[in-house]
Design a protein around this nucleic acid. Structure first.
Lengths: 157, 157
DNA sequence: TATTGTTATACTCTATAACTATA
DNA sequence: TATAGTTATAGAGTATAACAATA
């Protein structure tokens, strides 16, 4: 697993790190999911934005900025792309004319459940061989790491 | 956790998927590691290439292509960058003058153990609160997923 | 013809920062 | 002045494909 240096200390291998394995598996799982939502016409970032807006109506770009952990420039581009696909509308807020109110179109409201089903299927594909308990345990472990390190935003990167 | 559609089916949330959590944690862990190796002057892809070459001397770009799961164009750029940093040499193979023999410089051989230590530290930082048994179990779970799905190359992406 | 590696090109995703308009 | 959002620019990382040299 590890070779030795002249000082006798072992040089750890790539695969001795849990971080390596998480990234290894995660990249495959995400790449596969990306492919499946792309067939539905959206990117992963767009899916995350859509699913967030589906639950939280009347969000502003600033809200999304916080929730997705991205810069306002990046959010602006995602929203422009979704608007172009007729999945959302942006209207100037009546309260503060600098701000925007985002709302999903009917098309988007019909699409989100389908995308959620794709996410379910993707999870089944990769983790379906594990017991429900094992999967819940794993989620709990990931959540614990999130807590321990104070991670906050949804990482779209 | 999930809202209901007009047909009564629940629309799963982002955080109900194990894939979401793996990506969430993995992105943070990798981003942190990236930052730490960048301070040492290399990217994650370059670290992976260096660590691979450290164990497997006399590799060719074609070998790396398979092992890192990247195209030859990408490998070529990584090798050019590492050569520019004086971390490796590329010499025409005596056997087949189309191929190259890659060898690490002394500078690289001194650097790799330091980078490996950074990887160790990164793992400690994020998973140090878990028991050795729990960490080994997690790695085993990731390896099992790898096996079940026939994943092969080291994902550098 | 097939293979090894390089290079030109393009694309995706994101950040930074200058900018516009409101407040 | 400060804030919300847009846009221009840049950079990282990778893929595709045309290319040169060699087999």
């Amino acid at each position: 697993m590890a070779s030795a240096t002249s000082t006798g200390k072992p040089v750890s291998t790539l695969d001795s790190h849990l971080g390596f394995w998480l990234r290894y598996v995660s990249n495959y799982v995400s790449a596969c999911f990306e492919k499946s939502v792309e067939a539905a016409g959206v990117s992963i970032s767009e899916w995350v934005a859509l699913r967030t807006l589906y639950s939280k109506t009347d969000s502003t770009p600033a809200d999304l900025m916080c929730e997705l952990g991205m810069t306002k420039g990046a959010i602006s581009k995602i929203l422009a792309s979704l608007e172009k696909k007729e999945l959302l509308r942006r209207e100037t807020s009546l309260v503060d004319r600098r701000a925007q109110q985002i709302s999903l179109t009917r098309k988007a409201k019909n699409l989100v459940p389908k995308l959620a089903a794709l996410a379910d299927q993707n999870d089944e594909k990769f983790f379906g061989h594990m017991s429900p308990q094992q999967r819940m345990d794993l989620i709990a472990i990931m959540q614990e790491i999130t807590c321990v390190h104070g991670l906050k935003e949804i990482p779209v990167k």
